[in-house]
Deep mutational scan, measured.
Amino acid sequence: MFYPNSPQTSPQLTQIPYGQQYAMMQRQIQQPYHPFATTEPQARLYPYHYQGPIQQEQGGFITQQSTAASPQYVQMRVTPVDQSIMSGYPNQTANGSSSSSFNYNIHPQQQQQQQQQQQQLRHHAMPVGSVPLQDDRYRKQLIVNYLAPDVTSTDLHELFSRFGELDGARIIYDKQTNMSKGYGFVYFCHAEDAKEAVERMSGYEFHGKWLKVGYSTNPLNIVPSNSSPYVHAGSRGAAG
Rank of each mutant, 00 (worst) to 15 (best):
Q72P: 01
D193Y: 08
L211S: 09
T93Y: 13
N5A: 13
Q8C: 03
Q15C: 15
R77E: 01
P7C: 08
F185Y: 03
C189A: 12
E199I: 07
Y50L: 07
S153H: 02
L156G: 05
A239H: 03
D136E: 14
I106C: 09
Y18D: 10
Q58H: 03
S202R: 03
R170G: 01
H107G: 08
T14W: 00
V223K: 00
W210V: 10
I172H: 02
L220R: 15
L211V: 06
V74N: 01
E205F: 15
S101Q: 11
N103S: 10
P229G: 13
S10W: 15
Q30K: 12
A238S: 02
L159V: 04
V198Q: 02
Y22A: 05
V186A: 03
S87I: 01
T152A: 03
A169M: 15
R162Q: 07
G237I: 07
N103H: 12
I29D: 14
Y146I: 01
K181E: 00
E192S: 10
Q55G: 06
N226Y: 04
G203T: 04
D136I: 00
E196V: 04
M179I: 07
T79H: 01
V151R: 11
Q64M: 06
D167F: 12
T9L: 12
P127H: 02
S87A: 03
P17Y: 13
F2H: 13
S227K: 09
P4E: 06
T67G: 02
T93M: 06
G52S: 12
D82V: 10
R122T: 11
S235D: 10
A69P: 05
F2T: 01
H124P: 01
G182Q: 14
Q42M: 15
Q56H: 02
S202Y: 05
T38D: 01
F206G: 06
E192P: 10
S6H: 04
V144T: 05
D174I: 04
E158S: 08
L159R: 08
Q58W: 00
S98H: 11
H190L: 07
I62V: 12
K195T: 05
G234P: 05
S99I: 03
S161I: 14
P11I: 01
S216D: 07
V151G: 11
M25K: 05
S87V: 05
D155N: 13
D150W: 02
Q118T: 13
D150L: 07
Q109Y: 11
N103M: 15
L133V: 00
A94C: 01
Q20P: 09
Y22D: 03
Q21Y: 06
Q56W: 15
T14I: 15
Q30N: 13
G164Y: 07
P80K: 00
T9F: 12
Q83R: 05
G88D: 00
Q116C: 03
R236C: 05
T39Q: 00
G59L: 06
G234K: 04
A169N: 03
L220N: 15
S180A: 10
S228K: 06
G168A: 00
W210L: 03
V198T: 03
R139L: 06
Q141Y: 14
A239D: 12
H34L: 13
M24S: 01
A238P: 05
C189S: 12
V151I: 11
V151N: 00
S153R: 07
I16K: 04
G182W: 10
S87Q: 10
D193K: 09
I54E: 07
Q120K: 07
Y230V: 06
A94D: 11
P224D: 03
Y146R: 03
Q20V: 15
M86D: 05
T152Q: 00
A43N: 12
P132T: 12
D150A: 12
A169K: 11
P47S: 10
G60K: 03
A233Q: 04
V144G: 10
F188C: 04
Q114G: 04
N91W: 11
H232S: 02
Q111I: 03
H124K: 02
Q111A: 12
S235C: 02
P4A: 06
H190F: 15
F2V: 01
P17N: 01
S101T: 06
L133Q: 13
S66P: 10
E205A: 10
Q114F: 15
Y173T: 13
I171L: 06
H107P: 05
N95E: 02
D167R: 02
Y89M: 15
Q75L: 15
L45D: 00
S99Q: 06
S66Y: 09
S66Q: 10
F61E: 04
F36P: 02
Q120V: 02
T39V: 15
A194R: 05
D167Q: 07
D135G: 14
Y46S: 13
T93K: 10
D167H: 00
Q116I: 01
L166S: 05
D155R: 03
G182Y: 12
